[in-house]
Design a protein around this nucleic acid. Structure first.
Lengths: 108, 108
DNA sequence: CGGAAGACTAAGGAATACTTAGTGTTCGGT
DNA sequence: ACCGAACACTAAGTATTCCTTAGTCTTCCG
């Protein structure tokens, strides 16, 4: 069992397992034809093929993560993105405001 | 002149113009062959074709943004990602800690 | 064991991206 | 206004990658 080669595969697996879905089921939920869902999702997860953005958007929805999560290579940033996606609107705004402020007083 | 159809195109253009680069120059910097750099970058920016993740990584580097920035559809989150990318390590950690905390006291 | 469920793969046909060879467009200089 | 340069943009064909099909392999549990 070799380690994951692609970032998309790594993120996909983490989020799918967390959601308690099989590769095939997730693919079907995302609108992939039932006869190819298993193969396609496996190819994405193993890094054999890269999904297009349209299907990736639908997968992200079903896994309750922002789409950018699946493309981020930095684990800390991926984590930040994941958390942001789970916040309510008020806290999203607050977090963004804090980020802007942190950025501001870095420049001077 | 119609508006941008793809998210990648929109983010790409914003970041490229901000960096003061031409489509061709950016493509060459990202390692694309000089004879096709202009066409390819234009196709990405107009949403005609989708770049693979490898080339997208190199483009992101040259534009000093995290790769996830180019895939995020939510403008606020894209902004957060952009800011995070520009912070020093200490502030990155601080921001992530704040996010974790915000997430924590949301649950109870 | 036998069956079911999930993970995974090779191979070929289908779809998409990349290269080539240009045409538009904009703008500064004379 | 004209010219040239730089940049933006595009059609079309070839090259490359993905999607579908048709399975195998593995694990688990009755």
């Amino acid at each position: 069992m070799t380690s994951n080669i692609s970032i998309i595969g790594k993120r996909l697996k983490e989020a799918r397992v967390h959601a308690g879905l099989s590769q095939e089921r997730l693919g079907i939920l995302a609108g992939i034809d039932e006869f190819s869902a298993s193969a396609r999702m496996n190819q994405y997860e193993r890094g054999k093929h890269e999904p297009g953005m349209e299907i990736m958007k639908r997968i992200a929805e079903k896994l309750h993560r922002p789409i950018s999560y699946f493309y981020e290579v930095d684990d800390d940033l991926a984590h930040l993105i994941e958390i942001y996606g789970g916040l309510d609107q008020q806290r999203k705004e607050k977090l963004l405001a804090i980020a802007v402020e942190l950025h501001g007083n870095q420049s001077e």
